[in-house]
Simulated assay, not measured.
Amino acid sequence: METISPSLPLVQVSAEELKGTRKRLGINDVQMIRESLDNVEEWLKKQPHLVEASQHMSRTILERFFVLARGSVEGTKTKIEKLFTTRGMMPELSMHKTVNEFEKLWEVVNYIPLPKLSPKDLTRVMITQFLTDKLDDFSLLSYFRYNFLVGEFRLNYDYCASETFVIDLKNLSIGHLTKLNPIVIKKAELLCTEGFGTKINGIHIVNATPFVDKLLLILKSSLKPKVADRVHVHKTYDDLQKYIPKEILPKDYNGNEQSCAKLAEQWKEVLRSEEATRVIENMDKLITDESKRDVSKFNEEYLGMPGSFRKLNVD
């Protein structure tokens, strides 16, 4: 439990970074981690609506939930319950994803996790780039589906307690704002923060355009106040580097890492592999069996979403 196994070069985590993340969360006692995970596994066996799904969850993924729960056994149980339930509530975002469905998306946008964790806070940084101003084929729903495919895949290899997002507005114009459906954004944030339990350290906007204020209005009205307060607009890459160190940023942002284009190609190659296909298909099994749940009030108790919202479909 002192290294990441299996490892993936595109999401590097050194033994020291693993220990550092655990130390930050106060869970650096390896024996305690083992006993805690055993506790959660025993609990899962007694949850009729989770038993089937739990058989497809590796010990590796289980520890990721433990990390996201900051070392709390009860918090880990809650996160598993929330994620498995919300995935079923939002199938349009989370279910039945295949790599082939994103071929058109890849032509207009890059979404890539940076290979190295930030040495400042051990957060994983994700970058979104729009590759063209011709965005007729861009779908916000497809974009978020890809985000979650990458995120679910990373659960098997990554080890971090928080994430940071960089959104590059180059190639965007005010007309593209019509692509931003606030309901889709809200549901994606709920699945991210409430379902997966992701802590969002910050959202950083670069290459801001004259319409950035209108974009911020849409984002902040769609996000929870705590997350909305972590949205930053940067006029220069030097300003961005005050938050995200140059050593992990791609060349595109005056950093030392290889370009976003090269990283994007490497991700495509990995996700097209047989191993990735197996992992992605397995993630579809991480869902509750609602027919076996004794009491189903998760919708109101945890997310505060009315029943009509959970049934709402979006284009």
Rank of each mutant, 00 (worst) to 15 (best):
256 N>M: 12
286 L>P: 00
280 I>G: 01
280 I>D: 00
299 N>P: 00
305 M>T: 10
293 R>M: 15
269 E>N: 12
270 V>K: 03
263 L>H: 06
291 S>Q: 09
298 F>S: 00
300 E>R: 05
288 T>W: 01
301 E>L: 08
285 K>N: 12
302 Y>I: 13
288 T>H: 04
279 V>H: 00
292 K>Y: 11
294 D>P: 01
270 V>W: 00
287 I>G: 00
282 N>S: 06
280 I>T: 04
281 E>W: 02
258 Q>D: 13
256 N>I: 09
285 K>D: 00
259 S>N: 04
299 N>Y: 07
290 E>S: 14
271 L>W: 03
285 K>R: 14
255 G>S: 11
288 T>R: 10
284 D>L: 02
288 T>K: 10
268 K>W: 05
294 D>Q: 10
284 D>R: 01
278 R>V: 14
283 M>Q: 08
264 A>G: 03
260 C>G: 03
275 E>I: 15
286 L>T: 05
301 E>N: 03
297 K>N: 15
273 S>V: 10
279 V>L: 12
253 Y>S: 06
291 S>N: 12
259 S>P: 10
275 E>L: 11
277 T>S: 07
302 Y>L: 04
254 N>W: 02
292 K>S: 12
296 S>L: 03
276 A>H: 02
290 E>L: 12
296 S>C: 07
305 M>V: 14
274 E>M: 02
269 E>D: 12
298 F>H: 11
256 N>Q: 11
278 R>A: 14
282 N>E: 10
260 C>W: 01
258 Q>M: 15
278 R>E: 14
292 K>V: 13
287 I>C: 11
261 A>E: 14
262 K>I: 14
272 R>Y: 06
290 E>C: 05
